[in-house]
Design a protein around this nucleic acid. Structure first.
Length: 900
RNA sequence: GGGUCGUUAGCUCAGUUGGUUAGAGUACUACCUUGACAUGGUAGGGGUCACCGGUUCGAAUCCUGUACGACCCA
């Protein structure tokens, strides 16, 4: 078969993915092997994969494929999240384009549109996951709004309610005026903004309403809320305001009389030291209001316009109202001054609208009781966080200071809260209308005497926060809630490792731990209740200038476009090669280019090896082959050496995997393949032009190549599978994807040292040739004056070919008229017919001599320091002594050759 | 304001419990179209390890502080 010049990923990737699916390699059923379970962090169902996802999915696929090849029953569950606010916003937008107003639709009509939308766009992410080569079990696709999943969310809600861990109440919450829904604390992002601090005069009156003839100046960032003021507060220790006890202020524009209250909450140094108190529109003011029994006047509508309670500018949007109020205040002569002020504004994570603090009746989860065991699971080491040093503290801090979780959202797309209201407003929580109706009866009265029918019950309009469904993900993807104790949940839970972005540590990671510990009873050991044993946090993917990737900057590359351009393997390589766990990744297409070049290198190595197939001849190569045969010696050492290099690298890579240092492991593999295999080994065994290839050497080479692509497969699954099948005919079912790793033997240090000697000799001699401007094709005679000739015997044949020496001989004295090279304790003499310029060479030797003398001096300094010799560990002192001897003999050798 | 982490070559990063005059990749320079690969080969240059002090025989590594940066929380 003719192999193309360069590797073409497009022609192989889809073919192999289809083959793996066909063989059902990614499908998992419980069996006798240990399970390796990963649940995908479900992406937003109507989204697309961005580079952050790409990194996450690649990391997961590497871990899962490695486990699959290491005797585990690997199970990676794919799925997606209904993402209530984001998806509902998209559906509403789509409807608006069609000229349909959501408010004109019934709930079931809207849900039909939403499900249609999901059917249409929900598969985009799955296509991308497939293209990336992810080995997920497609029989296990889960979606947080599937009928069964929906049911599990409702069950958990009811259960938590019955145990008193969910309650309904009026609290100050974050309100998104654009989505017109409540948000949890975690869904608000704060950004610093330049705002204005407006100083406004409030007239003062006494208890009887008589003017005091003066006013108090307050500073506010939100003048549009003054109509909701119900007090003015000053610090009780502020000397400026001591005479205002019992006095009142008049709120401008609405002329409401409000008390002056005293509270240490007020910072006398901020503004004028006087604070307007608006309990309906600020969390601190709300708390002050509670403490001082102030009335609450809500002057905003749900959509962010001023409400009737504001009395002025009713119906005006809050931002327009701010300007209007300031204008009106100025006209009334009440504005003292305005100054620039840096403030922090909260934005809705989903709609980017400025959130409003708002008092509202919502559903909450009591978090304290759930947080305690979740903290314990991590601090006591049942769950390991990687990298731990970075995220342990964050995790701990949040759990120790956790607030109750607002879980109701004023949306339709999501699980509708199973609370049923009677006409009088009282409610019962139950899965169905009938069950709820029955619960009303429990109070003692017969159904008929309740005074209303089941049909009159009204279900709560709100849905649950998306995270209230995704916190059950590791349990319910195995039907652990809806079919407790089933075979899957018993086999696959706890999952092995969770790979996710550090940005959702509170939204999701902490809550999954809470859910797992809550759901599985205390009677079970902790290590069976936790949702996962390891958490691997990936960093944020930024562009090569360090900026966040965003649509508006246009710096977020299209995944499918990248795969088309470089191939999925190259994309995976590029994103992994410089991806330290937990640190931000600066995405650069140059890394993908490196990945593509690596593909090409592998491809060409294959072409080289395949080219030998037709030139095979039995003969040397084996260890048993005739000792005098140069080719035999050559093949033998290269094979021996690479065998041991592979063992060494395997050990390193396994260690790195155990520590989740995947980027490091890939670097090790890259260098093993490119440098050790391609640059050294293949060159060493390559037969001279026109000569035949030794059969035994060839067979070893194919075996090494197999081992290398086997190790690389988790990172670059497509090209490795392709190469595996091109290297040799394979039986049906013999695919790299499922090939198992054999146990690794310990490397022979002596062989590795000999290999290093060989590589050093080649590099040194090539460098010398280069500097003497000897063309590679120009043959030379080489003489070696070695410390130990034995070390050279096995590598002589390789050495002579690699440095183009027509002869190599040992010598015991310097060769006159030669090019002298000092390498360690050994000396090389190059004899050539071409006239040599020794000036360069002398310069080199002098430079080397200078370095060694400096080095020796530093070693001597240490050794002559009595305290060093006394205090340092004996092996360290020994090492220094050896360095001293070594340097001295090298210096001697150089000096000799300089004097020669 | 509180907290966490970081600062090593132009760039992206390694550097294990302190112990060679600090290593990769990439970029750069020179030479090489050789018969797997120019998406390549052979070699080379490049760092006072952010800064000040301290501990130690010895500090990129440990400690105090400073500067800068990132993130989390208020």
């Amino acid at each position: 078969m003719e192999l193309s010049k360069n590797y073409a990923p497009a022609t192989t990737e889809d073919r192999w993915y289809a083959h793996w699916l066909d063989k059902r390699y990614f499908n998992s059923k419980p069996d006798g092997r240990p399970a390796f379970t990963v649940v995908i962090p479900p992406p937003n169902v109507t989204g697309v994969l961005h580079m952050g996802h790409t990194l996450n999915e690649t990391v997961q696929d590497i871990l899962v494929r490695k486990a699959r090849m290491t005797g585990f029953n690997a199970c990676w569950v794919p799925g997606s999240d209904h993402a209530s606010i984001a998806t509902e916003a998209k559906v509403v937008g789509m409807l608006r384009e069609k000229g349909i107003d959501k408010n004109q639709l019934t709930r079931p009509e809207f849900m039909t549109y939403a499900y249609e939308w999901k059917e249409k766009y929900g598969n985009i992410i799955y296509d991308q996951i497939r293209k990336l080569g992810c080995s997920v079990d497609w029989d296990r696709v889960s979606f947080t709004m599937d009928a069964g999943y929906y049911d599990s969310v409702i069950r958990v809600f009811i259960d938590l309610y019955q145990k008193g861990l969910i309650y309904r109440g009026a609290r100050m919450i974050h309100w998104d005026p654009q989505a017109k829904t409540a948000l949890s604390d975690e869904e608000v992002e704060y950004r610093d903004e330049n705002g204005k601090l407006t100083y406004v005069n409030y007239a003062l009156v006494d208890g009887a309403g008589a003017s005091l003839g003066r006013s108090i100046t307050i500073a506010t960032q939100r003048p549009e809320t003054i109509m909701g003021d119900t007090a003015v507060c000053v610090n009780p220790n502020d000397p400026r305001y001591q005479d205002l006890r019992g006095a009142f202020a008049i709120v401008p524009l609405v002329n409401r009389r409000v008390p002056i209250i005293f509270d240490e909450y007020v910072d006398p140094a901020f503004g004028t030291g006087a604070l307007k108190v608006t309990p309906a529109h600020d969390i601190n003011d709300y708390n002050l209001g509670l403490k001082h029994g102030l009335p609450i006047i809500d002057t905003l509508n749900p959509d962010g316009t001023l409400s009737a309670a504001a009395e002025v500018f009713v119906g005006t949007d809050r931002f327009a109202a701010r300007k209007a109020v300031v204008k009106a205040l100025k006209e009334a002569g009440l504005v003292v001054k305005e100054e620039d002020h840096l403030t922090r504004l909260g934005y809705s994570q989903r709609t980017n609208a400025v959130v409003e603090p708002r008092i509202s009746t919502q559903w909450f989860v009591r978090m304290k009781a759930l947080a305690e065991p979740a903290l314990k699971a991590v601090t006591e080491g049942f769950i390991h966080i990687h990298p731990g040093d970075k995220f342990m503290a964050t995790y701990k801090y949040w759990l120790e200071n956790v607030e109750d979780w607002c879980i109701s959202r004023q949306l339709w797309w999501g699980q509708q809260i199973p609370a049923w209201y009677a006409p009088d407003g009282s409610f019962r929580v139950a899965a169905t209308r009938e069950e709820a109706y029955a619960l009303f009866g429990e109070a003692g009265a017969a159904a008929a005497s309740l005074g209303f029918t089941a049909a009159e019950l009204r279900q709560d309009e709100d849905v649950l926060d998306t995270w209230f469904s995704s916190w059950l993900w590791p349990i319910e993807v195995f039907k652990g809630v809806t079919r407790p104790g089933n075979a899957d949940i018993r086999y696959y839970y706890p999952t092995s490792v969770l790979v996710t972005g550090q940005d959702i540590i509170f939204f999701w990671v902490a809550r999954m731990i809470m859910a797992g510990l809550y759901y599985f009873p205390d009677s079970l050991p902790m290590d069976q209740r936790i949702p996962f044993r390891d958490v691997y946090f990936t960093g944020m993917v930024r562009d090569n200038l360090g900026r966040k990737m965003s649509k508006s900057l246009g710096n977020s590359p299209d995944l499918l476009g990248l795969i088309e351009k470089y191939g999925a393997d190259a994309v995976r390589f590029g994103i992994m090669i410089a991806s330290p766990a937990g640190s931000d990744l600066l995405f650069d297409e140059a890394a993908l280019e490196q990945g593509r070049n690596f593909n090409n290198k592998l491809w060409n190595a294959l072409k080289l090896v395949k080219g030998w197939e037709s030139r095979l001849a039995a003969g040397a190569g084996d260890a048993s082959a005739a000792a005098g045969n140069a080719a035999a010696g050559q093949g033998h050492f290269a094979i021996l050496w690479l065998e041991n290099r592979l063992r060494e690298a395997r050990t390193t890579i396994d260690q790195l995997f155990a520590e989740f240092r995947l980027s490091e492991a890939l670097k090790t593999l890259y260098s093993l393949i490119w440098d050790d295999f391609c640059s050294w080994y293949l060159e060493w065994v390559k037969p001279p032009f026109g000569e035949s290839m030794d059969k035994a050497v060839y067979d070893h080479t194919v075996r090494f190549f197999e081992q290398l692509i086997h190790l690389l497969h988790p990172y670059m699954p497509f090209i490795t599978e392709e190469l595996y099948h091109l290297l040799a005919e394979r039986a049906d079912g013999d695919d790299l994807c499922v090939r198992q790793f054999a146990a690794v033997a310990a490397p022979d240090a002596a062989i590795l040292a000999q290999g290093n000697l060989l590589k050093d000799a080649i590099t040194t001699l090539r460098d010398a040739r280069n500097k003497a401007q000897l063309k590679p094709k120009e043959p030379v005679k080489l003489f070696i004056l070695p410390e130990s000739p034995a070390a050279y015997r096995a590598i002589m044949a390789i050495l002579s070919r690699q440095v183009n020496a027509e002869s190599i001989d040992f010598t015991t004295e310097a060769i006159s008229g030669s090019l002298t090279i000092v390498a360690g304790k050994d000396k090389y003499y190059i004899v050539t017919e071409k006239a040599l310029d020794n000036g360069n060479q002398k310069e080199e030797l002098l430079k080397e001599l200078g370095y060694l003398k400096g080095f020796l001096e530093s070693v001597n300094k240490k050794l002559s320091n009595e305290r060093f010799v006394q205090n340092a560990k004996p092996e360290v002192v020994d090492l220094e002594r050896r360095k001293k001897e070594d340097a001295e003999s090298k210096i001697k050798a150089i000096e000799e050759s300089l004097n020669a």
